[in-house]
């Protein structure tokens, strides 16, 4: 896979003296979905703004599809569609007009057939003649996506597409994003909903305090950092852990009705087989077993705290 977007040492210090980004290196592969996770104020929006041209980076190099984002901004920006975090739309304009306007602004000739396709894909076709102010919040967000897609970009930036959006609409957004990926668009989305990254992303980057703490394949990240727990429910409760089982670091749960064993999800030897046979030898009868993998959220919180301790 080729890298469609390359960031090298991108730094941003605002006039106020606040440094929002400290030398970020990042690549986006063609056709992938990259989720950038981070707490509020981590620098996610600044990073996107530097790439899209709404904020001037203080230092560093940004290359979009082989074109420098500063010196060759026309060709670089033509490849990019931006869906901002806030709903920024002119209230009095009509849906069709505002999408057409976006296409023209990016220098593309009029193509109503293509715009019809986008509006239909986003379930906005029926609303094409409505004024923006008459639309619901979810529809407005889709209008923003339609505007961003109007000039056929190869990279789409979604800045917190589901912030403050209800569950149904969030699922709908995920579907829209999945369809875009299927159509070959590379996507960068920022979010602080971990489940969103977990549901959609191919790779996950974590930003905290203006630094990219890590960037990794979602599956690899989950298995590398994810802890799994095995919950063993017992037929008869125990008060203390039998001596033969002390080496496993078990914990008593549910008032003695269950034991909890924690292990590395990616480890080659988990010790489960030996634990189960030792349980039988200790004379414990099992009524049920369940395992649970730590969520990205727990991984994320762990990482952020770790970074803060190091700082």
């Amino acid at each position: 896979m080729t890298d469609i977007l390359i960031l090298e040492g991108v730094e941003k210090t605002y006039d106020s003296g606040f440094t929002a980004l400290h030398g970020v290196d990042l690549t986006l592969r063609e056709g992938e979905i990259l989720a950038l996770l981070g707490p509020n104020g981590a620098g996610k929006t600044t990073l996107i703004s530097c790439i899209c041209g709404t904020v001037m980076p203080t230092r560093g190099k940004i290359t979009v599809g082989g074109f420098d984002a500063l010196t060759d901004y026309r060709r670089a920006r033509s490849l990019i569609g931006l869906v901002p975090q806030e709903i920024h739309l002119e209230p009095f304009s009509r849906v069709m007009d505002t999408v057409r306007y976006s296409r023209g602004l990016f220098g593309k000739g009029r193509n109503d057939a293509y715009i019809e396709k986008i509006l239909r894909d986003l379930s906005l076709w029926d609303k094409r003649d409505s004024r923006v102010m008459e639309l619901s919040g979810g529809m407005k967000r889709r209008v923003l996506i339609a505007k961003a897609l109007s000039h056929e970009p190869r990279i789409l930036f979604l800045d917190e597409p589901t912030a403050g959006v209800d569950v149904d609409l969030r699922k709908e957004m995920w579907e829209v994003v999945a369809n875009l990926k299927a159509a070959g668009v590379s996507i960068v989305l920022t979010t602080h909903y971990i489940e969103e990254a977990e549901a959609m992303a191919d790779r996950i980057g974590v930003i905290n305090r203006g630094r990219l703490a890590l960037i990794e394949e979602k599956a690899a990240l989950m298995s590398r950092l994810g802890r799994k727990t095995l919950k063993i429910e017992l037929e008869t409760p125990v008060a203390v852990i039998p001596d033969a089982l002390t080496s496993y670091g078990l914990q008593i749960a549910d008032g003695g009705n269950a034991l909890v064993y924690e292990y590395e999800a990616g480890a080659s030897r988990t010790g489960i087989t030996r634990l189960l046979s030792d349980l039988r030898d200790a004379g414990l009868c099992l009524s049920d077993l369940s395992t649970r993998q730590s969520t990205l959220e727990e991984i994320f919180v762990g990482l952020v705290h770790q970074q803060e301790e190091n700082a």
């Binding site: 670089a76 920006r77 931006l82 920024h88 002119e90 976006s102 505007k147």
Partner: peptide
């Protein structure tokens, strides 16, 4: 001023113009 006020100026700034 209106695009600055409504925030739609982001589009002008991110466009290849």
């Amino acid at each position: 001023y209106f695009p600055k006020f409504t925030g739609t100026i982001y589009e002008l700034l991110s466009a290849p113009v």
